[in-house]
Design a binder for these strands. Structure first.
Ligand code: SF4
Ligand code: SF4
Lengths: 151, 151
DNA sequence: TCTAATAGGATCATTTCAGTCCGATTAATC
DNA sequence: GATTAATCGGACTGAAATGATCCTATTAGA
């Protein structure tokens, strides 16, 4: 019942890209250093993101990553599911064959409802919103600095 | 992002107990057979449920399990969390130390919201409701049988 | 051509999961 | 009291997922 590390890194990566959407291409190492993750691991994650059509990658010297769509067109859910697969709180939702009793199971419906709710929440947030909020938070923090360095 | 097998078994176990709440004590093997799970494994799960105060266990000959509270006082969430631990979609929610950027992280808040929503949904359903719905579904199905054996 | 970058397959250590085994313990019954 | 039927609970195991890292190939700018 938790997000994998790879999923978390994927989010950090695209969030960084969204926050620097004005720049064309951003190198893997820069992203990894800024968002605090292993650069090699990010490479793996990025490949999956590219396959899912969320980012595009340029190889070779001066290569790097960039968003394949506009930040306001990428939902958080899409990023997560590109890495960790579609969200299914309980297996029986995904694989009907995994349990015989689902035709009468009252719990099954709860899982279905919970899953819809969760995917809805994550699907309703775009990278554009997240990046904007993040920038605001950072700005707020630097403005605060003279008053309260301890934060 | 999924329920463990142990959690699923725990739910099945307490659901069975709730559906037979009129009987005093029910043997482990009977529950395991009826709800289709390994009896040994159920033993492990039951111990945790007992520690969490959800069921009580009687040892010795003619021993077995029973609900420690009324079905309407046991939420689905409690059963799940007794086995799999408190639900945290993302580690940073649980362990603040696991990520430095959470003070400014816009994604953090989304996880927090999603988690609250999920726990709310699962916390709002009691065993009494589930058992009642399950019984109704079974009754409905047996009434249907003469008409459509294929289901 | 040289060099700086990613691609992508192989590999590996650790942890989690799912489950089993088995001796110890408990309590009803003979 | 002995037998028997049940759970307790710790040790153990195999399989899979997770979280990486390593290394060679490929790509493309200078
Ligand atoms: S018992 Fe119900 S909730 Fe559990 S796996 Fe089967 S259908 Fe799903
Ligand atoms: S970056 Fe944000 S969401 Fe991710 S672990 Fe850190 S605080 Fe949590």
């Amino acid at each position: 019942m938790r997000l994998t590390r790879a999923g978390e890194y994927a989010i950090r990566c695209v969030l960084y890209l969204a926050m620097h959407h004005d720049r064309e291409l951003i190198g893997r190492k820069e992203i990894a250093a800024a968002m605090d993750m292993p650069a090699q691991f990010l490479g793996k994650v990025a490949q999956q993101l590219a396959k899912a059509g969320i980012i595009s990658i340029r190889q070779g010297s001066q290569g790097g990553y960039e968003l394949a769509k506009r930040p306001q067109d990428i939902a958080l859910l899409a990023v997560i599911e590109a890495i960790d697969g579609e969200i299914f709180l309980n297996d029986c939702i995904h694989r009907p064959h995994s349990c015989d009793r689902q035709t009468i199971c009252s719990v099954h419906q709860i899982w279905d409802k919970a899953r819809r709710q969760l995917r809805n929440t994550l699907g309703g947030v775009t990278l554009a919103e997240l990046a904007a909020r993040e920038k605001r938070a950072c700005a707020g923090r630097s403005r605060e600095q003279p008053h309260a360095l301890q934060g």
